[in-house]
Design a protein around this nucleic acid. Structure first.
Length: 823
DNA sequence: AGCACGCCGACT
DNA sequence: GTCGGCGTGCTC
């Protein structure tokens, strides 16, 4: 029996079913240094391989076996506060992940240590000792002798040339000739991309390249595009030529191409110090909302409020006023925005008002920039954090306010494990800090509005647009009528006329096409065979940029077949109204209009959508056609017409949130119209103008929409009247996956015998919406439940039991509570 | 997951 | 008689 003071460590790479804080001993000098939130290096598992971990606390250990010791402490100061450690423990319990995975969310990206094993000679060998060794042992010792520093395992392996058996190592270790150590490589490196270009020695003319001997047709294709591009990433070249990276590697080997590293550099925001900003003038309604929110904040108790303001009502001004107050109390603020609205203009608003007190955190920053911002927050230099989802973990001290703008956006829910929702994290942090959580939206999620209606959240409304602007007039265009009248284009006569008028008046128009249904896919005109991705169970999408078929799920790409793979017919048909086709149609109908297109093709590289938007604003384009991205957050005063090309596809998605999403998207895009001094108009094209949701959207009547929706949710039992827990199974073999799901299902049924009073409905197992992605089959079990501790306890114990089954090696399981995107 | 221990077949 | 196959069980 041993009793000792120990460090409790969350260890990286443990799996859910054996995850817990592990106890380690600290030698005296480490004990002095150790604090919760520091990273440590610990031996783990049978082989005592070095792993990194994070100290989450201290304890004492009484148990059967002897404890291991912490090898070293990596950080001089804690990276994670006690508050965040508590948060991580909560996330583990909520999201069914390991403690380390939860803690990792709180570390700045790019702090990844690489731990490896390295070997060195323990001493200079005497001649006698040396001759006693076997031939292979001598070779290994020679290699180590030649190196001035210890050699990492893979490097040693490479130099040795053949397989190094563990026996060889352990025999040398036993003889005390070599020593094994853990090496820590602190990879704080800048993120960079690998670029390729033609070797500088290569004459850069096409003739010469064509003359290069022994070149395959695929390599030729690559070279041709390299002549065109100059330099590009491997990924880009693969995209445009359809070759695999192997072809490019071959060319590098032949020394025709060379690769080099280019730092990813995000044009940083101009941290302009406080420029003269005018005093915010609030309208009467804004002022009222602001005062009420301020009172909630001043009460100094944890609380949450919904700021429900129609598009253009000036929610941001209310934020700014509140932030000023919180700042005066020396407290910090987190402002979360959806990725798409984190434009330089939006960030600039914060900089110009609050100067370098602002830190920005989002995925577009380079690793180094993110680390800098993280440190500025951690050390208290920046007390306002503006960022996307993960910024909710910002290391702010003394939080006073968290704002979540466009709170209904699905990007606030992590699509990877741990599948947390930023709103839940924000609630937790506000509770711990007695802070105010402010959710803002023009179309709040049903769950949030329900909470506000039932008094759980405060509710402030901004029912009118700021200034003189009014909400746009909305008209529905019946596409069935259009079709009967002989109009087979995607543009109704009504909308076409409106656009013409708008151009005449020198105003701008925005046309929205939601992606679904506007993708072009390819099928056989004879037998109807659709060209599917070989790895996924969905049709391939035609991309006009490279003239190839692409799979949006696994990245597979292929040339357009000349004949049907099924019946060999040459009658290949392009279906769906592709984005390009729409542009073409519009140019044909309106030959004089200046049209700009914004979609996957034109925004292939990051932040190009910002450039497109600036272009649209400054260069007098008449029409902007685009996907969802044109709907969010743009503020162009000269836009007075918005057209929704087809509202139908997203209405009939097999998802209980389809109506909510459609309403939100339509409201947002309609809200782009008439934000300046001129009246706005909007046209919704649909085949079913009588649809009740479209009517609510056209009338911009959130309350009517909400009342209808909440009724349906209650009758059909959906959130907020229950929680949804989805359990996913995925694996290579479909029968294995289905079988695993069935086994889990029966385990669940059996367990529920002990909890007969717990409310639960089990649906499935059923195939996931897309059965196969990347050659992995996917099934799911859906539970309608009450997400409480007892329920999560059951799921947790079932997961642990499942991991002990043999099949868990072949079929992965993951749990998502209240998913937003149905996978 | 990743590693060591342990029990059976193929082989010098 | 030994090398190495992978089934099984554990991780402070």
């Amino acid at each position: 029996m041993f009793v000792n003071k120990t460090a409790l460590v969350a260890v990286e790479g443990s799996s859910y079913h054996f995850d817990k804080p592990y106890s380690y001993l600290l030698c005296d000098d480490l004990d002095e240094k150790a604090q919760p939130g520091m990273r440590v290096l610990v031996p783990f598992g049978n082989g005592n391989k070095g792993r990194q971990g994070i100290i989450v606390g201290f304890g004492s250990y009484e148990g059967e076996h002897e404890l291991k010791q912490v090898i070293s402490i990596i950080d001089d100061a804690p990276l994670i506060s006690e508050e965040h450690i508590a948060l991580a423990q909560w996330i583990k319990e909520q999201c069914f992940c390991t403690l380390y995975e939860a803690l990792k969310l709180m570390l700045p990206a790019g702090l990844n240590l690489i731990i490896s094993i390295e070997y060195s000679l323990s001493k200079d060998l005497t001649e006698q000792e040396y001759v006693c060794l076997s031939g292979t042992e001598q070779r290994l010792v020679n290699i180590l002798k030649q190196s001035s520093k210890p050699l990492e395992k893979n490097i040693l392996l490479e130099l040795f040339g053949e397989k190094i058996t563990s026996k060889l190592i352990s025999s040398l270790k036993e003889k005390n000739i070599i020593i094994e150590n853990n090496s820590i490589d602190d990879k704080k490196s800048e993120s960079s991309v690998t670029m390729i270009r033609l070797c500088t020695t290569t004459e850069q003319t096409e003739e010469l390249l064509a003359a290069v001997k022994g070149i395959t047709s695929k390599q030729k294709k690559v070279l041709k595009s390299m002549l065109e591009f100059g330099a590009a990433t491997i990924k880009e070249v693969c995209y445009f030529t359809g070759v695999t990276p192997a072809v490019i590697k071959g060319l590098i080997k032949k020394e025709i191409l060379e690769q080099y590293e280019k730092r990813i550099f995000r044009a940083p925001y101009n941290n302009a110090a406080n420029t003269a900003v005018n005093e915010l003038v609030l309208s009467q309604t804004q002022q009222l909302a602001y005062e009420n929110l301020l009172n909630h904040y001043k009460a100094g108790k944890a609380s949450a409020s919904l700021l429900f303001g129609i598009t253009g009502s000036g929610k941001t001004s209310v934020f700014m006023k509140l932030i000023e107050n919180v700042l005066n109390d020396n407290k910090s603020i987190i402002v979360l925005v959806p990725e798409i609205s984190l434009t330089p203009q939006a960030v600039q608003r914060f900089y110009s008002r609050f100067g370098n007190k602002v830190a920005v955190l989002h995925s577009g920053l380079s690793v180094g920039e993110r680390l800098d911002e993280w440190e500025r927050i951690n050390e208290g230099y920046a007390s306002i954090v503006v960022g996307t989802r993960s910024a909710v973990f910002a290391p702010c001290k003394n939080l006073g306010l968290i704002i979540i703008d466009e709170e209904q956006e699905y990007t606030y829910k992590s699509e990877f494990s741990p599948r947390y929702h930023a709103r839940d994290i924000a609630r937790f942090r506000c509770a711990k800090n007695n802070a105010l959580l402010l959710l803002a939206s023009a179309t709040p999620s049903i769950e949030t509005f329900y909470a506000a209606q039932s008094g759980k959240y405060g509710l402030e409304r901004l029912d009118e647009r700021y200034g003189t602007a009014n909400l746009p007039q909305v008209v529905m265009a019946d596409m069935k009528n259009e079709f009967q009248n002989g109009n087979t284009t995607i543009l109704s006569d009504y909308l076409l006329n409106e656009i013409k008028n708008n151009i005449q008046e020198k105003r701008q128009s925005i046309l929205l096409m939601n992606r679904r249904g506007f993708n072009t896919f390819i099928s056989c005109g004879e037998c109807g065979e659709v060209i599917n991705c070989p790895n996924c169970s969905i049709p391939m999408t035609y991309h006009s940029a490279n003239g190839r078929l692409m799979c949006h799920y696994c990245g597979y790409s292929t040339e357009i077949p000349t004949k049907c793979p099924n019946c060999e017919s040459h009658h290949i048909k392009y279906s769906g109204a592709g984005t390009q086709k729409i542009e073409q149609t519009i140019t044909e109908l309106l030959p004089d209009a200046k049209v700009l297109r914004m979609d996957m093709d034109t925004t292939a590289n990051k932040f190009s959508h910002e450039k497109i938007l600036t272009k649209f604003e400054n260069e007098h384009y008449d029409i902007l056609i685009g996907t969802q991205m044109v709907a969010k957050g743009l503020d162009f005063p000269n836009v007075t017409l918005v057209g929704v090309l087809s509202a139908d596809q997203m209405l009939f998605m097999n998802d209980f949130r389809a109506y909510e999403r459609t309403f939100s998207l339509l409201t947002q895009v309609i809200g782009r119209s008439g934000r300046g001094i001129h009246e706005g108009r909007a046209v919704i094209q649909t085949g079913c103008p009588e649809n009740i949701l479209l009517r609510f959207a056209a009338e911009q009547d959130y309350d009517a929409f909400y009342n209808n929706e909440i009724k349906m949710r209650k009758i059909l039992l959906y959130p907020p009247f229950c929680d949804i827990c989805e359990i996913y199974f995925s694996g290579i073999s479909e029968s294995d996956v289905l079988n695993a799901a069935k086994v889990f299902h029966s385990m669940l049924l059996e367990e529920m015998q002990n909890h007969k009073k717990m409310p639960l409905r089990i649906l499935g197992p059923t195939p996931a919406a897309i059965l196969k992605i990347n050659n992995r089959y996917r099934y799911k079990i859906i539970l309608k439940c009450k997400n409480n501790k007892a329920f999560r306890g059951i799921i947790s114990s079932l997961l642990i039991a499942y991991y002990k089954e043999k099949m868990s090696k072949k079929v992965f399981v993951s749990v998502d509570i209240n998913p937003l995107s149905s996978i």
